[in-house]
Design a protein around this nucleic acid. Structure first.
Length: 495
RNA sequence: GCAGAUGUGAUCUAGUUGGUUAGGAUUAAAGCCUUCCAAGCUUUCUGCCCGGGUUCGAAUCCCGGCGUCUGCACCA
Protein backbone atom coordinates (compact mmCIF):
# COMPACT_ATOMS: atom_id res chain seq x y z
CA UNK A 1 0.00 0.00 0.00
CA UNK A 2 1.69 3.24 -1.09
CA UNK A 3 1.97 5.92 1.54
CA UNK A 4 0.31 9.15 0.51
CA UNK A 5 2.13 12.12 2.00
CA UNK A 6 -0.80 14.47 1.58
CA UNK A 7 -3.32 12.31 3.43
CA UNK A 8 -0.81 11.38 6.12
CA UNK A 9 -0.13 15.09 6.63
CA UNK A 10 -3.84 15.55 7.34
CA UNK A 11 -4.56 12.34 9.17
CA UNK A 12 -1.65 12.62 11.56
CA UNK A 13 -1.88 16.34 12.20
CA UNK A 14 0.87 17.97 10.15
CA UNK A 15 -0.63 20.41 7.66
CA UNK A 16 -3.82 21.07 5.68
CA UNK A 17 -5.81 23.89 4.13
CA UNK A 18 -6.90 26.77 6.26
CA UNK A 19 -10.62 27.29 6.96
CA UNK A 20 -11.44 23.94 5.40
CA UNK A 21 -14.84 23.74 7.10
CA UNK A 22 -15.85 26.73 4.98
CA UNK A 23 -14.48 25.24 1.79
CA UNK A 24 -10.99 26.70 2.19
CA UNK A 25 -9.09 29.40 0.36
CA UNK A 26 -6.41 28.55 -2.15
CA UNK A 27 -2.90 29.21 -0.96
CA UNK A 28 -3.50 29.24 2.80
CA UNK A 29 -2.47 26.44 5.13
CA UNK A 30 -2.66 25.60 8.83
CA UNK A 31 -0.18 23.56 10.82
CA UNK A 32 -1.62 21.01 13.24
CA UNK A 33 -0.24 19.52 16.43
CA UNK A 34 2.51 17.52 14.70
CA UNK A 35 3.18 20.06 11.96
CA UNK A 36 3.68 22.95 14.37
CA UNK A 37 6.18 20.87 16.35
CA UNK A 38 7.99 19.80 13.22
CA UNK A 39 8.12 23.36 11.92
CA UNK A 40 9.43 24.64 15.23
CA UNK A 41 12.13 21.98 15.30
CA UNK A 42 13.19 22.85 11.77
CA UNK A 43 13.35 26.52 12.66
CA UNK A 44 15.38 25.76 15.78
CA UNK A 45 17.83 23.63 13.81
CA UNK A 46 18.10 26.32 11.15
CA UNK A 47 18.66 29.08 13.69
CA UNK A 48 21.22 27.11 15.62
CA UNK A 49 23.18 26.31 12.50
CA UNK A 50 23.15 29.63 10.66
CA UNK A 51 23.31 31.92 13.68
CA UNK A 52 26.30 29.85 14.68
CA UNK A 53 28.24 31.07 11.67
CA UNK A 54 29.21 34.31 13.37
CA UNK A 55 28.82 35.89 16.81
CA UNK A 56 27.55 39.05 15.17
CA UNK A 57 24.47 37.39 13.65
CA UNK A 58 21.29 38.22 15.54
CA UNK A 59 17.65 37.21 15.55
CA UNK A 60 15.21 40.09 15.26
CA UNK A 61 11.45 40.29 14.76
CA UNK A 62 9.80 42.93 12.63
CA UNK A 63 6.28 43.89 11.55
CA UNK A 64 4.25 42.08 8.93
CA UNK A 65 2.75 45.39 7.80
CA UNK A 66 5.01 47.89 6.12
CA UNK A 67 4.28 51.46 5.02
CA UNK A 68 3.79 52.35 1.40
CA UNK A 69 6.94 54.47 1.33
CA UNK A 70 9.22 51.60 2.37
CA UNK A 71 7.87 49.29 -0.30
CA UNK A 72 7.90 52.06 -2.85
CA UNK A 73 11.61 52.53 -2.16
CA UNK A 74 12.33 48.79 -2.22
CA UNK A 75 10.79 48.59 -5.67
CA UNK A 76 7.86 46.37 -4.73
CA UNK A 77 5.13 48.92 -5.39
CA UNK A 78 6.24 49.31 -8.98
CA UNK A 79 8.02 46.07 -9.69
CA UNK A 80 5.76 43.54 -8.02
CA UNK A 81 2.91 44.15 -10.42
CA UNK A 82 1.30 43.10 -13.63
CA UNK A 83 -0.59 45.54 -15.87
CA UNK A 84 -4.21 44.61 -16.48
CA UNK A 85 -6.86 45.89 -18.85
CA UNK A 86 -10.50 45.28 -18.08
CA UNK A 87 -13.31 44.89 -20.59
CA UNK A 88 -15.95 47.61 -20.28
CA UNK A 89 -18.70 45.19 -21.26
CA UNK A 90 -18.08 41.86 -19.53
CA UNK A 91 -15.62 43.01 -16.91
CA UNK A 92 -13.07 40.34 -17.74
CA UNK A 93 -9.48 41.35 -17.03
CA UNK A 94 -6.54 40.48 -19.26
CA UNK A 95 -2.80 40.82 -18.89
CA UNK A 96 -2.19 43.96 -20.93
CA UNK A 97 1.42 43.25 -21.79
CA UNK A 98 0.46 39.86 -23.14
CA UNK A 99 -2.37 41.10 -25.30
CA UNK A 100 0.03 43.56 -26.87
CA UNK A 101 2.81 41.00 -27.25
CA UNK A 102 0.41 38.61 -28.96
CA UNK A 103 -0.21 41.17 -31.69
CA UNK A 104 3.14 42.91 -32.02
CA UNK A 105 5.39 39.97 -31.18
CA UNK A 106 7.57 42.42 -29.31
CA UNK A 107 8.26 42.42 -25.59
CA UNK A 108 5.79 44.73 -23.85
CA UNK A 109 6.97 44.08 -20.32
CA UNK A 110 8.41 47.54 -19.70
CA UNK A 111 5.47 49.60 -21.00
CA UNK A 112 3.97 52.13 -18.60
CA UNK A 113 0.23 52.33 -18.07
CA UNK A 114 0.06 55.32 -20.43
CA UNK A 115 2.03 53.42 -23.08
CA UNK A 116 -0.39 50.55 -22.74
CA UNK A 117 -3.45 52.74 -23.15
CA UNK A 118 -1.91 54.20 -26.33
CA UNK A 119 -1.02 50.78 -27.69
CA UNK A 120 -4.48 49.42 -26.97
CA UNK A 121 -5.95 52.28 -28.99
CA UNK A 122 -3.36 52.07 -31.74
CA UNK A 123 -3.77 48.32 -32.21
CA UNK A 124 -7.54 48.54 -31.68
CA UNK A 125 -7.46 45.71 -29.14
CA UNK A 126 -10.82 44.25 -28.12
CA UNK A 127 -11.92 41.87 -25.43
CA UNK A 128 -11.19 38.30 -26.50
CA UNK A 129 -14.42 37.10 -24.97
CA UNK A 130 -17.08 39.56 -25.99
CA UNK A 131 -15.31 41.97 -28.34
CA UNK A 132 -16.02 44.84 -25.94
CA UNK A 133 -13.68 47.80 -25.61
CA UNK A 134 -11.14 48.09 -22.81
CA UNK A 135 -11.13 50.51 -19.91
CA UNK A 136 -7.93 52.31 -18.94
CA UNK A 137 -5.10 50.03 -17.90
CA UNK A 138 -4.47 49.50 -14.20
CA UNK A 139 -1.97 47.48 -12.26
CA UNK A 140 -2.48 44.31 -10.33
CA UNK A 141 -0.05 44.27 -7.44
CA UNK A 142 0.89 40.99 -5.87
CA UNK A 143 1.02 42.67 -2.46
CA UNK A 144 -2.01 42.68 -0.18
CA UNK A 145 -2.99 46.28 0.61
CA UNK A 146 -3.91 47.16 4.19
CA UNK A 147 -5.89 50.29 4.99
CA UNK A 148 -4.62 51.85 8.21
CA UNK A 149 -6.69 53.84 10.72
CA UNK A 150 -10.27 55.01 10.45
CA UNK A 151 -9.81 56.77 7.16
CA UNK A 152 -7.53 54.16 5.65
CA UNK A 153 -5.67 57.02 4.04
CA UNK A 154 -2.27 55.83 5.20
CA UNK A 155 -1.82 52.94 2.87
CA UNK A 156 0.33 50.02 3.80
CA UNK A 157 0.94 46.49 2.58
CA UNK A 158 1.51 43.09 4.07
CA UNK A 159 5.19 42.44 3.51
CA UNK A 160 5.98 40.39 0.41
CA UNK A 161 9.28 39.25 1.96
CA UNK A 162 10.75 39.39 5.45
CA UNK A 163 14.02 40.80 4.13
CA UNK A 164 12.77 44.39 4.19
CA UNK A 165 12.45 44.27 7.96
CA UNK A 166 16.18 43.62 8.19
CA UNK A 167 17.08 46.43 5.79
CA UNK A 168 14.88 48.92 7.60
CA UNK A 169 16.52 48.02 10.88
CA UNK A 170 20.06 47.80 9.64
CA UNK A 171 21.21 51.22 10.76
CA UNK A 172 20.00 50.90 14.32
CA UNK A 173 21.43 47.42 14.73
CA UNK A 174 24.74 48.48 13.32
CA UNK A 175 24.83 51.02 16.14
CA UNK A 176 23.51 48.64 18.81
CA UNK A 177 25.99 45.95 17.86
CA UNK A 178 28.86 48.39 18.05
CA UNK A 179 29.52 49.21 14.42
CA UNK A 180 30.95 45.94 13.23
CA UNK A 181 30.74 44.16 9.91
CA UNK A 182 29.74 41.61 9.01
CA UNK A 183 26.44 42.08 10.77
CA UNK A 184 23.77 39.45 10.28
CA UNK A 185 20.07 40.01 10.89
CA UNK A 186 17.79 37.00 10.95
CA UNK A 187 14.03 37.03 10.70
CA UNK A 188 11.68 34.08 10.75
CA UNK A 189 8.19 35.19 9.93
CA UNK A 190 5.28 35.43 7.55
CA UNK A 191 5.30 36.99 4.13
CA UNK A 192 2.32 37.53 1.86
CA UNK A 193 1.87 37.38 -1.90
CA UNK A 194 -1.42 37.51 -3.72
CA UNK A 195 -0.55 34.70 -6.11
CA UNK A 196 -2.79 34.45 -9.14
CA UNK A 197 -2.85 30.67 -9.18
CA UNK A 198 -1.57 29.07 -5.99
CA UNK A 199 -1.16 25.38 -6.59
CA UNK A 200 0.93 22.32 -5.73
CA UNK A 201 0.08 22.32 -2.04
CA UNK A 202 2.45 24.31 0.12
CA UNK A 203 4.75 25.00 -2.81
CA UNK A 204 3.09 28.24 -3.78
CA UNK A 205 1.24 29.91 -0.94
CA UNK A 206 -0.31 33.31 -0.42
CA UNK A 207 0.75 33.40 3.21
CA UNK A 208 4.13 31.81 3.69
CA UNK A 209 6.87 31.59 6.28
CA UNK A 210 10.37 32.69 5.49
CA UNK A 211 13.56 32.17 7.41
CA UNK A 212 16.11 34.67 6.22
CA UNK A 213 19.58 35.72 7.19
CA UNK A 214 20.67 39.05 5.75
CA UNK A 215 24.42 39.48 6.06
CA UNK A 216 25.57 43.08 5.82
CA UNK A 217 29.21 43.18 4.86
CA UNK A 218 32.07 44.85 3.06
CA UNK A 219 32.72 42.70 -0.03
CA UNK A 220 36.42 43.57 0.12
CA UNK A 221 36.94 42.27 3.65
CA UNK A 222 34.06 39.86 4.27
CA UNK A 223 36.17 36.84 3.36
CA UNK A 224 38.64 37.64 6.11
CA UNK A 225 35.97 36.85 8.69
CA UNK A 226 35.40 33.41 7.17
CA UNK A 227 37.45 30.28 7.57
CA UNK A 228 37.97 29.72 3.86
CA UNK A 229 40.20 26.74 4.61
CA UNK A 230 37.06 24.76 5.33
CA UNK A 231 36.35 24.72 1.60
CA UNK A 232 39.46 22.65 0.85
CA UNK A 233 38.51 19.56 -1.07
CA UNK A 234 34.77 20.12 -0.65
CA UNK A 235 32.52 19.30 -3.58
CA UNK A 236 29.19 20.98 -4.19
CA UNK A 237 26.20 19.67 -6.17
CA UNK A 238 25.85 22.37 -8.77
CA UNK A 239 23.82 22.93 -11.92
CA UNK A 240 25.27 25.93 -13.73
CA UNK A 241 23.27 27.77 -16.35
CA UNK A 242 25.26 26.27 -19.21
CA UNK A 243 24.85 22.78 -17.77
CA UNK A 244 21.11 22.74 -18.22
CA UNK A 245 19.86 19.56 -19.79
CA UNK A 246 22.95 17.57 -18.83
CA UNK A 247 21.57 15.63 -15.89
CA UNK A 248 20.52 17.03 -12.55
CA UNK A 249 23.84 18.41 -11.35
CA UNK A 250 27.56 17.91 -11.35
CA UNK A 251 29.79 17.82 -8.28
CA UNK A 252 32.19 20.75 -8.61
CA UNK A 253 34.85 21.69 -6.09
CA UNK A 254 34.59 24.95 -4.18
CA UNK A 255 37.98 25.83 -5.55
CA UNK A 256 36.89 25.44 -9.14
CA UNK A 257 33.78 27.53 -8.59
CA UNK A 258 35.98 30.33 -7.30
CA UNK A 259 38.95 30.01 -9.66
CA UNK A 260 37.37 28.91 -12.90
CA UNK A 261 33.82 30.23 -12.64
CA UNK A 262 34.73 33.40 -10.76
CA UNK A 263 32.09 33.25 -8.07
CA UNK A 264 33.09 35.30 -5.00
CA UNK A 265 34.79 33.15 -2.40
CA UNK A 266 32.41 34.32 0.34
CA UNK A 267 29.50 33.27 -1.84
CA UNK A 268 30.89 29.79 -2.42
CA UNK A 269 31.70 29.52 1.30
CA UNK A 270 28.03 30.02 2.10
CA UNK A 271 27.01 27.52 -0.57
CA UNK A 272 29.18 25.03 1.23
CA UNK A 273 27.60 25.88 4.58
CA UNK A 274 24.10 25.49 3.14
CA UNK A 275 24.94 22.13 1.59
CA UNK A 276 26.38 21.01 4.91
CA UNK A 277 23.16 22.05 6.66
CA UNK A 278 21.01 20.01 4.30
CA UNK A 279 23.22 16.94 4.15
CA UNK A 280 24.36 16.77 7.78
CA UNK A 281 21.47 18.22 9.78
CA UNK A 282 18.40 17.71 7.59
CA UNK A 283 19.85 14.43 6.25
CA UNK A 284 18.85 14.95 2.66
CA UNK A 285 20.37 12.24 0.50
CA UNK A 286 23.13 13.91 -1.51
CA UNK A 287 21.56 12.98 -4.83
CA UNK A 288 18.39 14.86 -3.91
CA UNK A 289 20.13 18.16 -3.28
CA UNK A 290 21.54 20.73 -5.67
CA UNK A 291 22.34 24.37 -6.30
CA UNK A 292 20.59 25.61 -9.41
CA UNK A 293 22.05 28.72 -10.97
CA UNK A 294 19.55 31.28 -12.21
CA UNK A 295 20.29 32.93 -15.49
CA UNK A 296 20.51 36.69 -15.84
CA UNK A 297 16.98 36.68 -17.21
CA UNK A 298 15.55 34.54 -14.44
CA UNK A 299 17.03 36.35 -11.49
CA UNK A 300 16.02 39.69 -10.09
CA UNK A 301 18.16 42.40 -11.68
CA UNK A 302 19.71 43.43 -8.36
CA UNK A 303 21.03 39.92 -7.67
CA UNK A 304 24.64 39.70 -8.78
CA UNK A 305 24.88 35.99 -8.10
CA UNK A 306 21.85 33.80 -7.61
CA UNK A 307 21.55 30.08 -7.01
CA UNK A 308 18.35 28.42 -5.92
CA UNK A 309 18.71 25.59 -3.47
CA UNK A 310 16.61 22.71 -4.69
CA UNK A 311 15.46 19.37 -3.35
CA UNK A 312 14.23 16.46 -5.45
CA UNK A 313 10.67 15.95 -4.22
CA UNK A 314 8.60 13.10 -5.54
CA UNK A 315 5.34 14.70 -4.39
CA UNK A 316 6.10 17.70 -6.60
CA UNK A 317 7.63 15.80 -9.47
CA UNK A 318 11.33 16.68 -9.36
CA UNK A 319 13.78 19.28 -8.16
CA UNK A 320 12.01 22.24 -6.54
CA UNK A 321 13.27 25.46 -5.00
CA UNK A 322 13.33 25.40 -1.20
CA UNK A 323 15.80 28.20 -0.52
CA UNK A 324 17.98 30.76 -2.25
CA UNK A 325 21.38 32.36 -1.86
CA UNK A 326 21.43 35.87 -3.27
CA UNK A 327 24.23 38.35 -3.49
CA UNK A 328 22.20 41.55 -3.65
CA UNK A 329 25.06 44.03 -3.62
CA UNK A 330 24.25 47.40 -2.09
CA UNK A 331 20.94 47.64 -3.92
CA UNK A 332 18.66 47.45 -0.90
CA UNK A 333 20.39 49.85 1.44
CA UNK A 334 20.98 52.30 -1.40
CA UNK A 335 17.31 52.26 -2.28
CA UNK A 336 16.27 52.86 1.31
CA UNK A 337 18.82 55.63 1.60
CA UNK A 338 17.24 57.30 -1.42
CA UNK A 339 13.71 56.63 -0.26
CA UNK A 340 14.06 57.67 3.36
CA UNK A 341 16.81 60.25 3.18
CA UNK A 342 18.56 58.39 6.00
CA UNK A 343 22.21 57.73 5.40
CA UNK A 344 22.99 54.04 5.16
CA UNK A 345 26.69 54.58 4.71
CA UNK A 346 28.89 53.33 7.51
CA UNK A 347 32.47 53.97 8.39
CA UNK A 348 34.83 51.14 9.31
CA UNK A 349 38.49 51.89 9.98
CA UNK A 350 38.18 55.08 8.02
CA UNK A 351 36.57 53.36 5.04
CA UNK A 352 33.12 54.61 4.14
CA UNK A 353 30.71 52.33 2.35
CA UNK A 354 27.13 51.25 1.96
CA UNK A 355 27.30 47.62 3.08
CA UNK A 356 26.53 44.89 0.61
CA UNK A 357 24.01 42.19 1.40
CA UNK A 358 24.38 38.44 1.11
CA UNK A 359 20.92 36.98 1.60
CA UNK A 360 20.21 33.42 2.73
CA UNK A 361 16.50 32.95 2.18
CA UNK A 362 14.58 29.79 3.09
CA UNK A 363 10.94 28.90 2.54
CA UNK A 364 9.98 27.30 5.83
CA UNK A 365 6.77 25.68 4.60
CA UNK A 366 8.57 24.17 1.65
CA UNK A 367 11.30 22.91 3.95
CA UNK A 368 8.82 21.31 6.32
CA UNK A 369 7.12 19.68 3.36
CA UNK A 370 10.54 18.51 2.18
CA UNK A 371 11.04 16.71 5.49
CA UNK A 372 7.82 14.79 4.94
CA UNK A 373 8.48 14.13 1.28
CA UNK A 374 12.05 12.94 1.71
CA UNK A 375 11.85 11.10 4.99
CA UNK A 376 8.52 9.30 4.66
CA UNK A 377 9.32 5.80 3.46
CA UNK A 378 7.02 2.96 2.46
CA UNK A 379 8.61 0.47 4.80
CA UNK A 380 6.26 -1.46 7.03
CA UNK A 381 3.08 0.63 7.13
CA UNK A 382 4.79 3.93 6.48
CA UNK A 383 7.77 5.21 8.43
CA UNK A 384 8.80 8.83 8.78
CA UNK A 385 12.53 8.57 9.35
CA UNK A 386 13.27 11.95 10.88
CA UNK A 387 16.55 12.92 12.52
CA UNK A 388 16.04 13.08 16.29
CA UNK A 389 16.51 16.84 16.46
CA UNK A 390 13.67 17.41 13.99
CA UNK A 391 11.08 14.90 15.18
CA UNK A 392 7.81 16.28 16.67
CA UNK A 393 8.26 13.85 19.56
CA UNK A 394 11.69 12.49 20.42
CA UNK A 395 10.55 9.61 22.62
CA UNK A 396 7.49 7.48 23.15
CA UNK A 397 6.95 5.50 26.35
CA UNK A 398 4.82 2.34 26.40
CA UNK A 399 3.97 -0.34 28.90
CA UNK A 400 4.14 -3.55 26.87
CA UNK A 401 0.56 -4.22 27.88
CA UNK A 402 -2.02 -2.37 29.83
CA UNK A 403 -1.25 -4.12 33.08
CA UNK A 404 -1.08 -2.69 36.58
CA UNK A 405 2.50 -3.65 37.23
CA UNK A 406 3.87 -2.22 33.97
CA UNK A 407 1.98 1.07 33.86
CA UNK A 408 3.48 2.80 36.91
CA UNK A 409 7.03 2.18 35.68
CA UNK A 410 6.21 3.55 32.24
CA UNK A 411 4.43 6.53 33.76
CA UNK A 412 7.42 7.24 35.91
CA UNK A 413 9.80 7.30 32.92
CA UNK A 414 7.35 9.56 31.11
CA UNK A 415 7.24 12.00 34.01
CA UNK A 416 11.01 12.13 34.22
CA UNK A 417 11.72 12.60 30.53
CA UNK A 418 8.93 15.03 29.72
CA UNK A 419 10.64 17.71 31.77
CA UNK A 420 13.39 18.06 29.18
CA UNK A 421 12.12 16.34 26.04
CA UNK A 422 9.08 15.92 23.84
CA UNK A 423 7.63 12.62 24.98
CA UNK A 424 4.53 10.71 23.88
CA UNK A 425 2.89 8.30 26.29
CA UNK A 426 0.57 5.61 24.94
CA UNK A 427 -0.99 2.51 26.48
CA UNK A 428 -3.96 1.88 24.20
CA UNK A 429 -4.20 -0.86 21.61
CA UNK A 430 -1.61 -3.48 20.86
CA UNK A 431 2.08 -2.74 21.09
CA UNK A 432 2.42 -3.13 17.33
CA UNK A 433 -0.21 -0.50 16.71
CA UNK A 434 1.53 1.90 19.04
CA UNK A 435 4.83 1.41 17.27
CA UNK A 436 3.10 1.99 13.95
CA UNK A 437 1.64 5.29 15.19
CA UNK A 438 5.08 6.48 16.15
CA UNK A 439 6.45 5.32 12.81
CA UNK A 440 4.00 7.61 11.06
CA UNK A 441 4.75 10.74 13.03
CA UNK A 442 8.46 10.11 13.03
CA UNK A 443 9.16 9.52 16.71
CA UNK A 444 12.68 8.09 16.51
CA UNK A 445 12.79 6.17 19.80
CA UNK A 446 10.18 4.08 21.59
CA UNK A 447 10.89 2.97 25.14
CA UNK A 448 8.91 -0.09 26.27
CA UNK A 449 8.55 -1.45 29.78
CA UNK A 450 8.13 -5.24 29.72
CA UNK A 451 8.04 -8.13 32.20
CA UNK A 452 11.69 -9.10 31.83
CA UNK A 453 12.59 -5.52 32.54
CA UNK A 454 10.53 -5.44 35.73
CA UNK A 455 12.69 -8.23 37.07
CA UNK A 456 16.14 -7.01 36.10
CA UNK A 457 15.59 -3.25 36.00
CA UNK A 458 15.78 -2.73 32.24
CA UNK A 459 13.64 -1.38 29.42
CA UNK A 460 13.85 -1.77 25.65
CA UNK A 461 14.55 1.04 23.23
CA UNK A 462 13.33 0.66 19.69
CA UNK A 463 14.89 2.51 16.78
CA UNK A 464 12.13 3.63 14.43
CA UNK A 465 14.33 3.70 11.33
CA UNK A 466 15.18 0.01 11.60
CA UNK A 467 12.60 -1.28 14.16
CA UNK A 468 15.59 -2.83 15.94
CA UNK A 469 15.50 -3.02 19.73
CA UNK A 470 18.11 -2.87 22.46
CA UNK A 471 17.78 -3.50 26.15
CA UNK A 472 19.18 -0.83 28.46
CA UNK A 473 19.31 -0.27 32.22
CA UNK A 474 16.38 1.68 33.55
CA UNK A 475 18.79 3.58 35.79
CA UNK A 476 20.64 4.91 32.72
CA UNK A 477 17.56 6.04 30.87
CA UNK A 478 17.98 9.76 31.50
CA UNK A 479 21.60 9.78 30.33
CA UNK A 480 20.74 7.76 27.26
CA UNK A 481 17.80 10.03 26.47
CA UNK A 482 20.02 13.09 26.64
CA UNK A 483 22.59 11.58 24.31
CA UNK A 484 19.99 10.47 21.78
CA UNK A 485 17.93 13.66 21.87
CA UNK A 486 20.88 15.92 21.25
CA UNK A 487 22.27 13.64 18.58
CA UNK A 488 25.50 13.11 20.50
CA UNK A 489 24.79 9.40 20.28
CA UNK A 490 22.85 7.43 17.73
CA UNK A 491 20.98 4.21 18.31
CA UNK A 492 23.91 2.32 16.84
CA UNK A 493 26.15 3.70 19.58
CA UNK A 494 24.08 2.09 22.31
CA UNK A 495 25.46 -1.07 23.85
C1' G B 1 -6.36 33.96 -14.84
C1' C B 2 -7.91 30.52 -19.22
C1' A B 3 -9.30 25.36 -20.73
C1' G B 4 -10.44 20.36 -19.34
C1' A B 5 -11.32 16.95 -15.40
C1' U B 6 -13.03 16.47 -10.53
C1' G B 7 -15.26 16.92 -5.14
C1' U B 8 -18.95 10.82 -0.75
C1' G B 9 -17.25 9.98 7.42
C1' A B 10 -10.69 11.52 10.09
C1' U B 11 -8.23 8.81 5.58
C1' C B 12 -9.03 5.85 1.03
C1' U B 13 -13.04 4.64 -1.70
C1' A B 14 -18.19 1.87 -3.75
C1' G B 15 -22.61 3.86 -5.37
C1' U B 16 -24.74 8.59 -10.51
C1' U B 17 -30.06 5.75 -17.40
C1' G B 18 -32.77 10.32 -10.47
C1' G B 19 -36.18 6.01 -6.37
C1' U B 20 -36.18 2.59 0.61
C1' U B 21 -32.37 3.43 6.46
C1' A B 22 -25.48 5.87 1.08
C1' G B 23 -22.01 0.38 1.40
C1' G B 24 -16.90 -1.12 2.40
C1' A B 25 -11.76 -0.79 4.13
C1' U B 26 -8.50 1.69 7.23
C1' U B 27 -8.09 5.05 11.32
C1' A B 28 -9.97 6.73 16.07
C1' A B 29 -12.50 5.78 20.98
C1' A B 30 -14.35 2.10 24.94
C1' G B 31 -14.06 -2.97 26.58
C1' C B 32 -12.29 -8.19 26.32
C1' C B 33 -7.99 -10.82 24.98
C1' U B 34 -2.75 -10.53 24.30
C1' U B 35 4.70 -11.45 27.30
C1' C B 36 6.98 -6.84 21.28
C1' C B 37 5.68 -4.76 15.64
C1' A B 38 -1.29 -1.78 12.55
C1' A B 39 -3.51 -9.77 15.35
C1' G B 40 -8.63 -11.19 16.95
C1' C B 41 -13.63 -10.34 19.11
C1' U B 42 -17.65 -6.84 20.90
C1' U B 43 -19.41 -1.91 20.93
C1' U B 44 -19.28 3.25 19.40
C1' C B 45 -18.43 8.15 16.75
C1' U B 46 -18.02 10.82 12.20
C1' G B 47 -20.15 11.67 5.51
C1' C B 48 -22.68 13.02 -0.15
C1' C B 49 -18.04 20.80 -0.81
C1' C B 50 -21.54 25.27 -0.45
C1' G B 51 -25.94 27.87 -2.45
C1' G B 52 -29.83 27.98 -5.86
C1' G B 53 -32.90 25.39 -9.63
C1' U B 54 -35.62 21.15 -12.16
C1' U B 55 -38.64 17.07 -10.02
C1' C B 56 -43.64 13.57 -6.52
C1' G B 57 -38.43 12.49 -5.28
C1' A B 58 -31.42 14.83 -6.20
C1' A B 59 -25.05 12.24 -3.72
C1' U B 60 -26.82 11.42 -8.95
C1' C B 61 -29.48 16.28 -13.70
C1' C B 62 -28.84 21.96 -14.54
C1' C B 63 -26.73 26.89 -12.97
C1' G B 64 -23.45 29.70 -9.80
C1' G B 65 -19.62 29.75 -6.10
C1' C B 66 -15.53 27.44 -3.52
C1' G B 67 -11.68 23.74 -3.44
C1' U B 68 -8.42 20.15 -5.90
C1' C B 69 -5.71 18.03 -10.19
C1' U B 70 -3.56 18.50 -15.30
C1' G B 71 -2.04 21.77 -19.36
C1' C B 72 -1.15 26.93 -20.69
C1' A B 73 -0.01 31.62 -18.49
C1' C B 74 2.15 33.74 -13.99
C1' C B 75 6.17 33.15 -10.16
C1' A B 76 9.01 40.78 -8.65
Amino acid sequence: MPVDVQSLAKRRGFIWQSAEIYGAMAGFYDYGAMGARLKRKWEDAWLKYFMGLNDNYHLIDTTNILPYAALKASGHVDGFTDPLVECSKCGHAFRADQLIEDVTNEPAEDLTLTDIDEKVKELDLKCQRCKGTFLEARTFNMMFPVPIGTTGKDTAFLRPETAQGAYLNFKRHFEIMRRKLPLGLTIIGKAYRNEIAPRQGVYRMRELIQAELQIFMDPDTFSESLNLEEMKGKMLNVQLVDMRGEGNFKPISCDELIQKYKFPDFYVYHMMKIQEFYLDIIKLPAEKFRFFEKSEKERAFYNRVHFDIEADLHTLGGFKEIAGLHYRGDYDLTKHQEGSGEKMEVSIDGKRLIPHVLELSFGVDRNVWTLLDIHLTEERTGVLKLPAVLAPYTFAIFPLMRKDNLIPVARDIHQKLRVDYDVYYDQSGSIGKRYARMDEIGTPFCITVDYDGLEDGTVTIRDTDTSEQKRVKLADIEDIARALATGRKTFADLE
